[in-house]
């Protein structure tokens, strides 16, 4: 397993939609490397005959009747919107250079 390089981190920050300054990138590269080294030991014991657990208490096929319940009004939904226009959320340009 490889530690995280600064280049990796630039890519990860883009994937995660977090803008990072050079200083932040430098600091986090070292921190993440140390964390990854400390937790990499999990692969030591994870042999192929061990099944994975994604959920601690097994509950399967949790279903309910498909009935209409109470919903929030448009006013309630838009109450916290950073920007809105005639019952819709308003966002900046979706595409570059338009």
């Amino acid at each position: 397993m490889s530690a995280i390089s600064r280049e990796d981190l630039v890519h990860l920050a883009q994937l995660a939609h977090i803008e990072m300054s050079d200083a932040e990138l430098d600091k986090m590269t070292g921190e993440l490397g140390a964390i990854v080294n400390a937790i990499a030991s999990v692969s030591e014991v994870a042999s192929s005959d061990v099944p994975a657990t994604s959920h601690p208490i097994p509950l399967t096929n949790v279903l309910r009747e498909d009935v209409v319940g109470e919903t929030l009004s448009i006013d309630e939904v838009l109450l916290n919107a950073p920007d809105s226009d005639s019952d819709r959320f308003k966002v900046p340009a979706i595409l570059d250079g338009e």
């Binding site: 397993m1 999990v42 692969s43 014991v45 994870a46 042999s47 099944p51 994975a52 657990t53």
Partner: peptide
């Protein structure tokens, strides 16, 4: 990295149970 990290961690979860 998914198998080595997340996948392994989920197996460890089984071992801890």
């Amino acid at each position: 990295y998914y198998d080595a990290y997340y996948g392994s961690a989920q197996k460890v979860r089984t071992l801890i149970q």
